[in-house]
Amino acid sequence: MSKNDRFEVLYQETGLKSEKAIFADKETGVNYLFIADGFGGGLTPLLDAEGKAVITK
């Protein structure tokens, strides 16, 4: 698996100055939430109601 194939985009929403996306790591199944707004942004594991990582199988 090449580096470019490791993550899959599950959801993506783009606006004029912002972007929201959910990525799934194909090796671990862990989902990540990415948010960018203007010149700032962040990436974090997506958590369920119990605080555990959301995993896509």
Rank of each mutant, 00 (worst) to 15 (best):
G51F: 11
D48T: 10
N4V: 13
A24S: 13
R6D: 06
G40H: 09
D5Q: 12
A21P: 01
Y11W: 05
G42K: 09
G38Q: 02
F7H: 09
N31G: 01
L16C: 07
R6L: 02
S18P: 00
L10C: 08
I22S: 06
K57A: 11
K26F: 01
Y11E: 12
G38M: 04
K57R: 14
Q12S: 13
K17H: 10
A21C: 02
G38W: 00
V30K: 09
L16D: 15
E27Q: 13
V54H: 00
G51D: 08
D48M: 10
F23D: 07
V9K: 08
G41T: 00
K3Q: 12
T44M: 14
I22G: 05
K52V: 05
L10G: 03
L47A: 03
I35A: 09
G29A: 03
I22F: 04
L16N: 14
G15E: 03
I55Q: 08
T56N: 11
M1E: 14
F7G: 04
A24L: 03
E8G: 07
V9P: 06
G29Y: 04
A24Q: 09
Y32D: 03
E50F: 11
Y32N: 04
M1L: 14
I22Y: 08
G51W: 07
F23S: 00
K17E: 13
A21H: 00
I55M: 10
F23Q: 07
Y32C: 02
E27M: 11
